[in-house]
């Protein structure tokens, strides 16, 4: 994240991805002066599936920080005041500025697969879009043979990849 100094940051988390992505958000907020605008997009299937909602409200109060919350259609409650829609659709209609931005996308593979092209369409460079692959691992030392995506062992050579790197790999994730 040190390489991202001076950039706008877009954090996109789906479902239970909030715990891992939260650490990166904390780091950015603790070093607030180093970064431009921060956009946090967090969605889950239903309102009940959202975690750390108190923190989301606190983050929305921080300077140059906006939080977009969403749930899948049908997952909302009568009190729900935020967005309804799948994360890629919500991002598409949210006018998040793509210029000088870096995006970190964490979530289920299906969300990643549909979100990366949306960021690409917004005009972001593929090298500035990062994601984390969730491939199943057992040994974590590049031996047991199950986390690979083509020639890449996710445990040893990932799990963080840029969209540029991911475009070179087979879709085994």
């Amino acid at each position: 994240m040190k390489d991202w100094k001076g950039k706008n940051l877009i954090f996109i988390g789906g479902g239970i991805a909030m715990p891992p992505i939260r650490c990166a958000i904390w780091y950015a907020l603790e070093n607030r002066a180093d970064y431009g605008n921060i956009t946090i997009v967090y969605g889950a299937r239903t309102v009940g599936d959202l975690v750390f909602v108190d923190e989301l409200d606190q983050w929305a109060q921080k300077e140059r920080t906006s939080v977009i919350q969403c749930v899948d259609p049908g997952g909302e409650t009568p009190e729900w005041k935020h967005e309804i829609g799948l994360i890629p659709h919500v991002i598409e209609r949210s006018n998040i500025p793509a210029e000088n931005s870096v995006a970190l996308v964490v979530g289920p593979p299906i969300m990643i697969r549909f979100t990366l092209p949306v960021l690409d369409k917004m005009g972001m460079a593929k090298k500035d879009i990062y994601t984390s692959l969730e491939n199943r691992m057992k040994c974590g030392i590049g031996k047991c043979g199950r986390c690979n995506c083509g020639p890449v062992y996710v445990c040893k050579e990932g799990p963080i990849f840029s969209f540029e790197q991911l475009s070179q790999l087979p879709s085994d994730y």
């Binding site: 289920p108 593979p109 491939n135 199943r136 047991c144 199950r146 085994d172």
Partner: peptide
């Protein structure tokens, strides 16, 4: 021993299976 030919081999905790 395990095998990449088994359906459970790569299944994620979420139930998603890349293969």
């Amino acid at each position: 021993w395990d095998s990449c030919q088994f359906g459970q081999f790569t299944v994620h905790a979420s139930g998603h299976n890349p293969r």
